[in-house]
Structure formats: structure tokens, C-alpha cells
Simulated assay, not measured.
Amino acid sequence: MIDNQAVINFRRLGMLTICAVYFVILVGGIVRASGAGMGCPDWPTCFGQWVPPTEEAQLPPNYHEIYAQRGYQNTQFNPVKTWTEYTNRLVGVSIGFLIFLTAWSSRIFLKGDKPIFYLALTCFFLVGFQGWLGSTVVASNLKPLMITTHMLVALLIVALLIYTIARSQRDFLQQLDVSQLPTKFKTVLVVAMGMTLLQVAMGTQVREAVDVIAHSTDLERQYWRESFPVIFYVHRSFSSLILFTNLWLVWKLYQSVDKSSVLLRAGFGLAGLVVSAILAGVSLDRLGMPPVAQPIHLLMANLIFGMQFFLFICLAYAQKKANA
């Protein structure tokens, strides 16, 4: 018999870890939007130090030549960018500790539901892989493909964590009444998840185009829009389809499930996230690409997929119980 308090502690720790991963995605977005990705041109140290310098005088007089020989041309020390990137690394390290604690606490399921333990352990190894991938991103001098891969692995870690925590309370999820939902609801939900991933992929292409424009022009940010590629307009128009698809899902949840159901609360959360993501995207389009909107837009996209995935898991468990 698994101790109930131990299960509760595991879920709380797991939820904290999920929130921390989303936070590091937000911080990573801030790093990229602020151009601080090379604020620390080496890894795991920063300018050869475990605690970064706060002023250029703390660096060797010839540090420009040192890093130019390592393949990092025009390295300029900027304390704000350096500490922004270093903070991103510290947050990433904290994720490692949290995921280790989550995996360790999941051992209580070894006698009752072994997949929970192995899922948590997989997340732990993925976080280690993500740390190595982060060092590769720095070593590649911020190649767009490496940055995109780094983000997709973070998305995978979150999805596995969500499934792990949801599986630990499947007895509760199996009691959800979904009998009144349309038969095509699950299919539309899967399509919506695919649309979100496609939109994220297009968003990374737009982001890469923005990076190219930022490094190839001296124009102010508000004039960058004139140089955007066609995929930007596809990405922008596709958001309308995503909005209406997700609103349909939320409307059907409102019509078909109990008003106190976790499904409806998740549905309302999903609607709020989609609207927030679109508003952030509109501000990027109409307000001259304000840096503050970029990480918010990225975070909302990741949260949307996470909420859709949670709804999918809930629906799968509820339908499995009903079919049985």
C-alpha cells in the first residue's frame, strides 16, 4: 500500500518541477530576445570564471583575442547580458536538482505502478541531455537549429512530466464524466495539438529570420517587419484557425461536463492562454517587436501545448474507464 502523504508530496514536487521548467523556458526566451545568448561565451564557466565578472576590468586585457581564437569573433563584455545568461544557467541547474528529487520520490510507485518511476527517471536523464545540449548551443555560436532543438527537448520534458504526474492520479481522472462530449472531441483535440506544434515550428522560423535581420541591419526594431519572410504572414494568419479550434473545444467542454470538473477549468485555462499568446503576437506585429513580448509569446505557446496535452491525458483515462 502506497502512503497517501508520499503520493501527495510526489505530486507537489512534480508540479513544482513543471512550473520550474516553464520558468526556464521564459528565462531562455528573455535571453534570446535580449541578445544575451553569448553573454557567456564559454561553458560551464562564464569568461573562465564560475562566478561571472561584473566589470570588464576583471577580465584579461586580451580577452577579445582569446575568444577570437576559440571561434567567437567580436566578443564584447556586457555585464547585463552576461548575468542574464548566467541566471539562465543557474535556473537550469535548479531544474536538475528538482527533477532528481522528483525521480527519487517516485520510487514509492515501484511496487504499484513502475512506469511512473521509469518516466520520472527518463525525465532526469533528459534534463542531463538538455544541459549538454545547452553547452552545444553555446559552442555552436547560437546556431538557430541548435536553439530550436534545445527548446523542443524542453517541450518533451514538460510533456513527460505532465503525463507522469497525471498517471499518479489516474484513479481520480478515471472518474471524470465525459459521456456527453461529442465523439469527435478527442480527434479535434489531437488536431489542435498538432496545429500548436506546427505553429511553434513556424514561430521558430520567424524567430530565426528576426535574428538574421537583427544582425544584418541598423534599422530600429519597428522597421524590421518590412523585411519579414512569407512564413511570418502564414504564422500570423494560422493563429486565427488555432483560436477558433481551441474555442470550439472549450465551448464543448462548457456544454458537456460538470461546471466543477477539472476538465472545464483546464479548458478555461486553455482559452486564456490562446488569447494571451495571440495578444503577445499582435504586440510583436503592431508595436515594433518589443523585446518583452517575445519571451511571453514563446511561454504562452509552450503552455498551450501543455494544457492541451493534459486535457488529452484526462480524456484518455476517462474514456478508458468508461469503455471498461
Results as ranks from 00 to 15, higher is better:
T82I: 06
K114C: 04
N323M: 15
S239N: 06
A154T: 07
L101P: 02
L121I: 07
H235L: 04
C123H: 02
D211V: 04
Q5D: 13
R221L: 12
L156Q: 08
S239P: 03
W50Q: 04
W83T: 07
D285I: 12
M307S: 13
Y63E: 01
R265V: 10
L241N: 08
Q222A: 13
I162K: 05
L26T: 02
L155Q: 11
T183C: 04
G112E: 12
L26N: 00
K111P: 08
L299A: 02
F125K: 05
V206D: 09
G92L: 00
G112R: 05
A316F: 11
F228K: 03
A120V: 09
V210L: 09
V188N: 06
L181R: 03
H64T: 01
A214T: 15
A293P: 02
I18V: 11
R32C: 11
P61D: 01
P291C: 04
L299P: 00
C19L: 15
I95H: 01
I242A: 15
A271T: 15
H64E: 01
F23R: 02
L241K: 01
N302M: 12
L298I: 08
T45S: 11
Y118F: 11
L26K: 01
V137C: 09
P61Q: 00
A318K: 01
S227F: 15
Q319R: 13
A154Q: 05
S135P: 14
Y22C: 10
A57E: 12
A277F: 07
F23M: 11
Y233Q: 00
A57R: 06
L16K: 05
N323G: 14
